[in-house]
């Protein structure tokens, strides 16, 4: 069993999840607080990766980060290497691809926090930012956990975007889903089966954790904690 692709997938998912907390929490916070009329446009853009085929998203990302593009050439000039078919390129693509899986649970948990609590904090003199961090965030922990776990799992499981943007470079972009595809292509069914089983068990554990965290009544835990 070659563990490198699995480890690479885990590394990618960890980096992407961390980035999604950094980007997703403020974005969801803004979406929950903003009264801008054009807010729906941002919501629609964030949700796009859910409906678009990964190939379409991958194609656009590839075009956007190619050395011919502004972003791609800027990156090439600054870091001396190109974004497509690199780990950094994969991180960027996966972050965009998993964005809705982080932002939507974050947003729905922020919005389910009783507005009266925020209003109480505002009247007490706390700024909107302080209120968000001290009142809304602590009350949204299950949503934050769910968003993180879903982004992590979704990144582990992605295939199309990774293939288009990252290709299949061992140690750099050859993640676990692509290695399974490779094994099947090479008729190495036993190896493909082992890796698939590991991925299946992993995904099951992740989803079980999400449902457990979100369970309202949990007999094992003390009530009212």
């Amino acid at each position: 069993m070659n563990w490198a692709p699995l480890l690479l997938s885990l590394k990618l998912a960890a980096v992407v999840t961390a980035l999604l907390y950094v980007i997703g929490v403020p974005l969801a916070g803004w979406l929950s607080l903003s009264r801008r009329r054009w807010k729906f446009l941002v919501e629609a853009v964030v949700a796009l990766p859910i409906v678009l085929p990964p190939t379409v998203l991958g194609y656009y990302i590839l075009v956007a980060i190619s050395p011919q593009s502004y972003v791609g050439s800027l990156y090439l000039k600054t870091f001396g290497r190109a974004l497509p078919f690199s780990f950094e390129g994969l991180v960027l693509a996966s972050t965009l691809y998993s964005l809705p899986f982080a932002v939507q649970p974050f947003l729905s948990s922020f919005e389910s926090v009783d507005l009266r609590q925020s209003e109480a904090a505002w009247v007490l003199g706390a700024s909107r930012v302080k209120t968000f961090f001290t009142v809304v965030l602590p009350a949204s922990l299950p949503g934050l956990v769910t968003g993180g776990v879903l982004s992590f799992a979704h990144t582990i499981g992605e295939f199309g975007v990774v293939l288009l943007v990252g290709g299949n470079i061992p140690g750099s972009t050859r993640v676990v889903s692509i290695s399974i595809y490779d094994h099947v292509q090479a008729l190495e069914y036993a190896e493909a089966g082992r890796t698939s089983l590991i991925l299946l068990l992993f995904s099951f554990v992740i989803l079980a954790v999400v449902y457990a965290v979100n369970r309202k009544v949990w007999a094992v835990w003390p009530k009212n904690c």
Binding site: D114, R116, Q117, E119, A120, A121, V123, G125, T134, V135, P138, A139
Partner: peptide
């Protein structure tokens, strides 16, 4: 800087 107090008390539960 005023106080506002409602019937549905919104204490911070955590």
């Amino acid at each position: 800087r005023l106080g506002y107090f409602t019937q549905e008390v919104a204490l911070f539960p955590h």
